[in-house]
Amino acid sequence: MSQRSHYELPIWLNWIKDASGWLLPILLIAFWDIAARNGWITSKILPAPSDIVHAAINLSLSGEIFKNILISTKRAAGGLLIGGSIGLVLGLINGIFRPADRYLDTTIQMIRNVPHLALIPLVIIWFGIGEEGKVFLVALGVFFPIYANTHHGIKMADPQLLEMGRVYDLNHWQLFTQIIFPSALPSILVGLRYALGFMWLTLIVAETIATTSGIGYMAMNAREFMQTDVVVLAILIYALLGKLADTAAHFLELKLLQWHPNFRHS
């Protein structure tokens, strides 16, 4: 057996393998820095990475950056919580109860086809430029992916397993918790990952149009003073927050779908 142990890579090669996803971004940044330093790109178009780091340090020292990140995260989380739970509950109800599906699904599909960002003027009239309008837009943005995927997941529940549940005298609640919900969970989590994308997208747009705080505001404010370094920094923060949210969702998948061969890590 020991003779057949497979060839092992040296440790540093393994590190490179693990970090291979980061290779391209690092190269791009290096090229960008060189281009900016040599004046191939003016700093008004795109500042050098070192300038952006500088801006990040300054804004961190003043505490402004953290204040804005906190506010944006609160809006995102609030919208996700409200829109996500309504989407989940409606998806479950419409997936399980046929009459509810008949009455509600058509309406929901109609509203879904209205781009929710088109509602911004109306939302400003309704809520002003306060927090409610942004949370409302985010909630609307995350509602549909979670609703549609929950609905779909429930419909995909294996009729053979449901029949088996009947043989084992499971009551309606047990059928739901033991068979229907776990069947739908992979699909619900796909919905969550889509929703997280919509969450940041909606927030970015909402914060650049009508607001007095948040990362989007920080970027728009900097634009007025031609501080491209802060604008790029804001974009990078969005990217980072988006990546963080996606990683959290992926972690949730690994945790909740351990039974699924596709999600098993050996």
Binding site: M164, V167, Q178, P182, L185, L257, H260
Partner: peptide
């Protein structure tokens, strides 16, 4: 209707994959 006296084995095992 089906009750606890009788149990049914199907051609497929029909185990719950998440348990």
């Amino acid at each position: 209707s089906i009750n606890g006296d009788a149990r049914f084995m199907f051609q497929e095992s029909r185990l719950l994959p998440w348990q």
